[in-house]
Amino acid sequence: MRKVIIAALIVLVSVVKLNAQDAPNPITTATPFMLIAPDARAGGMGDIGVATSPDAFSQHWNASKMAFNSHQFSVGVIYTPWLRELTDDVFLGGFSLVNRIDDRSAWGASLKYFNLGEIQLTDNNGFPEGTEKLNEFSLDGSYSIKLSELYSMGVSLRYMRSDLGIESANSSIQPVNTFAVDVSGYFQSEENNYGDFNGVWRGGFNISNIGPKVSYSDDGQENYIPTNLKLGGGFEFILDNYNSVTVNAEFNKLLVPTPSINIADEDQDPQYIQEDVGFFSGMFKSFGDAPGGFSEEMKEFTWALGAEYMYDDAFALRAGYFNESDVKGDRKYFTLGSGFKFKSARLDMSYLFNASDIGNPLENTLRFSLAFDFGDMFEYY
């Protein structure tokens, strides 16, 4: 029975990996919880955030946005139920903080905690043998500085811990402790007139989770962490003093080598073997190592579109769409969201509609995030 529980746990964790296991050439990583969109504002726009306007949750998407934050202090709190159709005790929670130091720089910190729930242990006869609580978390610190009035860059240092072992079952899975770095950039234009409306251009990139490979067991087998490239851009249509509409597009790619296909025997299923190269070399190798050539490489990019309507900086409506190749995971979903501002507080909500045959852990789930802005105001544009 213990083996069954451990197998079920592995299935649970694999749900949040980038690719489905029955894909032609799946890419899997350790600590996949780092790719979960934490806040409901981004969740309402198809999980887009690298080039949206700054907010309390900028650190996850693009830390360089913090230097453009409109308030001196911003604090965010997140809660995202996970696999709610199967269980009620798995969730992602945490908080984030942004502090503008001056007109040109800012620092931030955040904590993300992924609770995998309580595992009930039984022996081979079904008698209870206690419980185990499994979890993963990350702790971040970031610094952002404007290199000009329109462009900033940021760097983040991240500590991650993943504890998926069941001690009482004599599991060979060991806790993982590791560090990673993010490097990001953000562009935000001045507000310019375009005839009947004003507008602001935004663009950004973020290379996140740059760090060494890790091992969950004593046998020495190492796994890449989810080093990821985000590229995005958007335009805000400022219709008048009360109404604005923002549209955004974003592309993502895991900077992890694609496993090669090895068929040892015609009677056996193909096996996928990931070349043993260092994490830094693997980042560059990931752009040209797909066995299917350029066409397969392009399928390893995901893309998303999102839109946000804002009224008087007090009420927001959002929508988005996320797409992944059907041979690289087949995640496809629509999202809706809304936001309400009460003085210095903002409450955001989002909902996901699955558009794929592959189940989504956030299907039929309402996500929430809460943000607070304090202190002096800074010029936004």
Results as ranks from 00 to 15, higher is better:
residue 55 D to A: 06
residue 279 F to L: 03
residue 219 D to V: 01
residue 130 G to C: 12
residue 40 A to L: 12
residue 355 A to F: 03
residue 381 Y to C: 14
residue 37 A to V: 11
residue 297 E to G: 04
residue 342 F to G: 07
residue 97 L to H: 05
residue 236 E to S: 15
residue 241 N to D: 15
residue 46 G to R: 03
residue 48 I to L: 05
residue 369 S to D: 10
residue 120 Q to D: 12
residue 212 P to M: 04
residue 34 M to D: 09
residue 240 D to M: 14
residue 87 T to Y: 08
residue 250 E to N: 09
residue 147 L to I: 15
residue 226 P to M: 00
residue 247 V to A: 07
residue 58 S to I: 09
residue 266 E to F: 10
residue 81 P to H: 10
residue 342 F to P: 09
residue 238 I to C: 09
residue 219 D to A: 06
residue 59 Q to A: 11
residue 287 F to N: 05
residue 128 P to H: 05
residue 319 A to T: 04
residue 268 Q to S: 13
residue 220 G to R: 04
residue 149 E to K: 11
residue 262 N to M: 13
residue 275 E to M: 03
residue 10 I to R: 14
residue 328 K to H: 08
residue 314 A to T: 11
residue 163 D to H: 07
residue 127 F to R: 14
residue 195 G to M: 11
residue 65 K to D: 04
residue 296 E to M: 12
residue 143 Y to W: 10
residue 37 A to Q: 12
residue 161 R to K: 10
residue 16 V to I: 15
residue 83 L to W: 00
residue 351 Y to K: 00
residue 226 P to Y: 01
residue 215 S to L: 01
residue 377 M to E: 06
residue 263 I to V: 15
residue 294 F to K: 00
residue 187 F to E: 15
residue 13 V to H: 02
residue 373 D to N: 14
residue 186 Y to M: 15
residue 169 A to P: 07
residue 143 Y to A: 12
residue 233 G to K: 02
residue 339 G to Q: 05
residue 109 A to N: 03
residue 285 K to M: 14
residue 149 E to Y: 00
residue 177 N to L: 03
residue 215 S to W: 02
residue 184 S to P: 13
residue 7 A to Q: 07
residue 85 E to P: 01
residue 194 Y to T: 10
residue 364 N to D: 14
residue 33 F to H: 06
residue 230 K to E: 13
residue 140 D to I: 14
residue 284 F to S: 12
residue 50 V to Y: 05
residue 34 M to F: 07
residue 343 K to F: 08
residue 49 G to L: 05
residue 282 G to Y: 05
residue 119 I to P: 08
residue 118 E to K: 13
residue 286 S to Y: 03
residue 278 G to P: 03
residue 254 L to C: 08
residue 108 G to W: 10
